[in-house]
């Protein structure tokens, strides 16, 4: 079945011819016809493909969406934009928090490993007082600003404020770290 007069046949070549008949020259068609006449498996494939091809080449109907597709899309744009904006804000806040926590961790490890218990207690008390003052000031600023700022500008404002706070915190941590180093040098 897979050979002609005992010789192995190149079925791949004929399968290619059967399945892409549009690309065949007249000589190739004749060659294929001769082969099909003697090869059972290629004849079977040819018949099967003719059936499948007839169905595929029929004018196939186009599926259409339910009416109002573009209106639904237009309506969804605003929601998708909002969702994307929220995603970006969440991503920004996550990065901000991770950076902040990492910086705090590095500072804490460095600070606690290089200072005496007395210095740590004194510095912690000072830092807590400063933080409390900063927190109260921040609350006052936010409540004042949100009172007159339109909702559209609120997110950019909060992002700017958060960035500024991060920078200030980092600067504050760096300055304390530098001071600690100076103290150590003096001692």
């Amino acid at each position: 079945m897979n050979s002609m007069k005992g010789k192995p046949m190149n079925h791949k070549k004929f399968e290619q011819m059967i399945l892409t008949p549009e690309a065949l020259t007249s000589e190739e068609r004749e060659e294929l016809a001769r082969h099909i006449a003697t090869c059972e498996s290629c004849r079977k494939l040819s018949l099967q493909w003719q059936k499948a091809s007839r169905m595929l080449n029929k004018p196939l109907p186009m599926a259409a969406p339910a009416p109002g597709f573009s209106a639904r899309f237009a309506h969804s744009i605003e929601k998708r934009k909002e969702a994307e904006q929220q995603k970006q804000v969440r991503r920004f806040i996550t990065i901000l928090l991770v950076s902040l926590l990492s910086a705090a961790l590095i500072f804490a490890v460095t600070y606690y490993s290089t200072n005496s218990l007395e210095t740590i207690i004194k510095d912690t008390a000072n830092a807590s007082a400063q933080m409390l003052f900063l927190w109260e000031s921040l609350k006052a600023i936010i409540s004042t600003v949100t009172g007159f700022l339109p909702t559209v500008l609120l997110i950019p404002f909060l992002l700017t404020a958060a960035s500024a706070m991060l920078t200030l915190t980092l600067l504050w941590l760096v300055s304390i770290w530098k001071l600690t180093l100076q103290k150590e040098t003096v001692l």
Binding site: E15, L19, T20, L45, Q48, W49, K51
Partner: peptide
């Protein structure tokens, strides 16, 4: 693409008979 179309057509042709 040619190779994928060839593979898809062959698969369709082979499955056609069984499904029919």
């Amino acid at each position: 693409v040619k190779s994928r179309l060839f593979r898809a057509r062959k698969e369709l042709a082979e499955k056609m008979e069984t499904r029919r």
